[in-house]
Amino acid sequence: MRDLTREILELIRRTSSDLPADVEERLRAAIEKETPGSAARGALETILKNVELSRQNSSPICQDTGTPIFYVRHPEGWSTRKLREQIRTALAEATARSYMRPNAVDAVYDKNSGNNLGGDDFPYIHFEEVEGDELTIELMLKGGGCENVGAQYSLPDNRLGAGRDLSGVRKAVLDAVHKAQGQGCAPGILGVAIGGDRGSGYLKSKEVLFEKIGERNPDPKLAELEEQLTQEANRLGIGPMGFGGGTTVIDTKITGLSRLPASYFVTVSYMCWAYRRRKMIVKGEQVLYD
């Protein structure tokens, strides 16, 4: 089996230092909505300068290089044990090269491992066997500021007047955006899972964030709710960094899951503007990056 350590190191470098084009485009568009001279506009201008500079210098866009979340989809015959080792080796090397901050802290003994490796679940790696002959590795870096403002609601919620339907989902999500204020580094992207259990809800609310900005859910009901939530979240006026302004959320992604008859969870994962996700594709001898 091919050793992909070097290629994965390059994936990590790109993810940490090079913001995807679809995210950058939305941030540029958001500038026009803010008043010249306002703190909100100043924040967006600084953000975009930072994006360019990080790309030039191969330095982290944000010092919180987050939880590394890998999704590996491999054809038959690849060893997931070896791939896991390669990912871990690449991540430790990326940390030594300052592409990543040492971010794995043992919660019981309060000790930072220094190399971003912390037990079986840090980094988080999801493996899935797929048909065809392409191996893809997707990486998302999700910082702690936005992770901390994620929220899960169990419907019905009397305080919000939210019942067990899409109207209730809407209320829960808007409440989560309001509670987050600027703490999640607005303007953010919302990943929403409807249903599932408490565990799968959070997992899927993150997974749905891998979808490109502006891509709508194929289910027209969910597509409509995605659009509506982005618009209504922006009416809250929280704005970039919570300074007040027109852009609080740049997109919303929703996924629907099965639930138990007794449970109706709405789970919101908030992604900061520094939405770092990249993909590499291995096809035969070729390695391509998005």
Binding site: T46, S59, Q63, G114
Partner: peptide, 26 residues
């Protein structure tokens, strides 16, 4: 500005020292 890490790092001219390194780099 949250997330503007490279940009802000440019305004850091010198690291004069570090205390409590055992807390970990962050």
């Amino acid at each position: 500005i949250g997330g503007a890490a490279t940009y802000i790092a440019q305004s850091v001219e010198t690291v004069l020292g570090v205390y409590k390194y055992e807390f970990g780099v962050p």
